[in-house]
């Protein structure tokens, strides 16, 4: 309803124009340029880059190397963030502090986290020293410069993000629904299982997608905390090498396109599953 009541006087297109222009300049154009670039290799036919990608054993396995890091990291982040966010749904002073503390890592940045992890988790780091001092574990600790280092870093930097997103979904659910379930005989677990969880599925799916996309494009921690030559040679490292060590921007573009494609496939799959469940209002009031 417009207050003036003129049919067809919809000015919405003008309101979205600046955003559309921004998208065009900074997203659509670079993307199309990259797509075009990936089909214009330095030598060979149009598909030469993609043929190279799928035949070179230094390139195609990076898809799975990255998946092996990104999927567990995403599952851990969402899986831990969900129960904590659920517990934090009722606002009290104490919980406000806990929320703040959980979110701090987001402000640190990956490089700072990596540096901290190197001193903390390294072979002669505090963790190793404490464990040895307490005689809990005397063997060597290998939590940096390998798969585990990158995974831990992905969890540390990705958790606050997943937590904040899920918290906003959880607190968006009318708490009176839980109380209604309680008066009908549902204990705490049954309330979560029957009321909160089904209403949260769309939010969990969205959170999973965003967390996954973020984890799949991991770069700094894979270099700093991982073994970039081997087990954590993720897809973005491959793209970086192509662009800045071999100066083959065309190949780098093709690798970037593959990275985008994998992300798209996973996101589409998750959102496809989401479509199967209820999506609608999460309050029990009058519609």
């Amino acid at each position: 309803m417009t207050p003036t009541g003129h049919a067809g006087a919809d000015r919405t297109p003008w309101l979205v124009a600046p955003a559309a222009l921004f998208m065009l300049l900074f997203f659509v154009y670079p993307f199309l340029y990259g797509l075009w670039l990936s089909f214009a290799p330095k030598e060979g036919g149009m598909l030469a880059n993609y043929a190279k990608f799928f035949s070179d054993t230094r390139l195609w396995p990076t898809i799975f190397t990255t998946l092996k890091l990104a999927l567990p990291a995403t599952l851990i982040n969402v899986g831990i963030a969900l129960p904590i966010a659920y517990r934090m749904r009722i606002k009290t002073k104490r919980q406000k502090w806990i929320t703040t503390a959980l979110v701090v890592p987001i402000t640190l940045g990956t490089v700072l986290v990596a540096e901290g992890m190197l001193t903390y988790f390294g072979p002669r780091g505090w963790l190793a020293q404490v464990l040895q001092f307490l005689h809990l574990y005397d063997g060597p600790i290998r939590l940096t410069h390998n798969f585990w280092g990158v995974l831990i870093s992905l969890v540390i930097s990705g958790f606050p993000f997943a937590f904040l997103l899920l918290l906003s979904y959880v607190t968006g659910i009318d708490p009176v629904l839980g109380r209604a379930a309680a008066t009908l005989g549902a204990g705490p677990w049954a309330q979560f299982r029957n009321v909160y969880l089904p209403l949260l599925i769309p939010g969990i799916a969205m959170c999973f997608c965003l967390a996954f996309v973020q984890a799949y494009s991991v770069f700094p921690s894979a270099v700093l905390l991982g073994a970039p030559a081997g087990p954590t040679r993720v897809i973005s490292i491959a793209a970086y090498e192509a662009a800045f060590e071999q100066y083959d921007y065309s190949l780098a573009s093709a690798i970037a396109m593959m990275m985008g494609l994998v992300q798209l496939v996973i996101v589409a799959a998750v959102l496809g599953i989401r479509r199967l469940v209820y999506r609608g209002p999460v309050t029990g009031g009058k519609g």
């Binding site: 009318d174 009176v176 629904l177 109380r179 209604a180 379930a181 008066t183 009908l184 029957n194 009321v195 089904p198 209403l199 209820y278 609608g280 209002p281 999460v282 309050t283 029990g284 009031g285 009058k286």
Partner: peptide, 13 residues
């Protein structure tokens, strides 16, 4: 006890 809430609190899903 059965309770009818002021805003009904029906489970929307």
């Amino acid at each position: 006890f059965g309770m009818v809430f002021q805003n009904y609190a029906l489970f929307p899903h």
